[in-house]
């Protein structure tokens, strides 16, 4: 029997949808498995073959609650990722505003230079930063991490904001100047409300990146200012085969930012594509 074009198209569509679900399941599976394992006992966690149906237990979570100070690490993550983002935004918004509305011949070069600092491998400058922090007594403090977080994200934030601000019609700015607006007023009353979507998405992206930042957190903080990344890392070395507990602590460490990402995914992409996607 000959298939009509319509039928063939529909068949292809069905296959594509099925394939999409299979791929989605494959990508999500490790996360699903981690969450599942966190509700198993240690014995069930390493059972061969693995058990899919079991009596879920909360003992891993209660144990983590007893043994570690989860909320402190979580709070540190919030403080440093939001703090670093806030500091970077405070520095970046006026700069990007000046570059976007009063560009000079060198503006583009400055932006590219900023981006190139992002390519310096952190490990290349770890020793100096570590020694400076040690000398200043800033090891394992929020301040050091917030400052470093702001610096490592500043180039990308500048780039995104610059591209957003550039899309604001110049006439609006000029009209406000005729009305005698101050520079501060221009930024807070006109630029920021108009570019709010871009500013929000830039901040979201920055928060996600900083929440998961591992290199500086692991090397510069431990028990006092340690973030959730540090907490998870502390569960890796000596614990051996305690997968269930490791899964539980990982689930706890990732859950806030994954949910945050789900809720803000559309906003986030705007920032990631430098405003290219509407």
């Amino acid at each position: 029997m000959q298939m009509t074009d319509k039928q063939r198209e529909r068949l292809i569509n069905h296959i594509a949808v099925a394939a999409a679900w299979i791929v989605a399941a494959l990508f999500f599976f490790p996360i699903f498995w981690m969450v599942l394992t966190s509700f198993k006992t240690e014995l069930e966690a390493i059972a061969v073959p693995p058990t899919l149906f079991f009596e879920p237990t909360l003992e891993n979570y209660t144990l983590i609650e007893e043994r570690t100070d989860y909320f402190r690490f979580a709070l540190n993550s919030v403080i440093t990722s939001f703090g670093g983002t806030l500091l970077a935004m405070l520095i970046a918004i006026p700069s990007a505003y000046a570059m976007a509305f009063n560009p000079t011949r060198r503006t583009k070069d400055i932006l590219l230079w900023m981006l190139s600092t992002k390519m310096l491998p952190a490990v290349g400058v770890l020793m100096p930063i570590y020694l400076i922090c040690q000398r200043l007594g800033l090891l394992d403090t929020h301040i050091a991490l917030i400052f470093i977080f702001a610096m490592i994200n500043l180039p990308i934030i500048m780039m995104i904001l610059f591209n957003y601000f550039r899309e604001i019609p110049k006439e609006i700015i000029e009209a406000s100047r005729m009305d005698g607006a101050t520079t501060f007023g221009e930024i807070t009353q006109i630029v920021m409300p108009l570019a709010w979507g871009g500013i929000a998405s830039t901040a979201l992206l920055s928060i996600v990146l900083l929440w998961n930042e591992a290199f500086w957190s692991i090397n510069l903080t431990s028990s006092d200012a340690g973030t959730l990344v540090v907490l998870v890392a502390s569960f890796t070395a000596p614990e051996g085969l305690f997968w269930a507990k490791l899964s539980a602590v990982s689930t706890l460490a990732c859950a806030p930012i994954v949910v945050f990402g789900w809720l803000t995914q559309k906003q986030l992409v705007q920032g990631l594509t430098f405003g290219a996607v509407k």
Partner: peptide, 12 residues
Amino acid sequence: MLISPFFIMPTV
């Protein structure tokens, strides 16, 4: 489901 792995910490 597809985008979730991006939000997971590299260590995890």
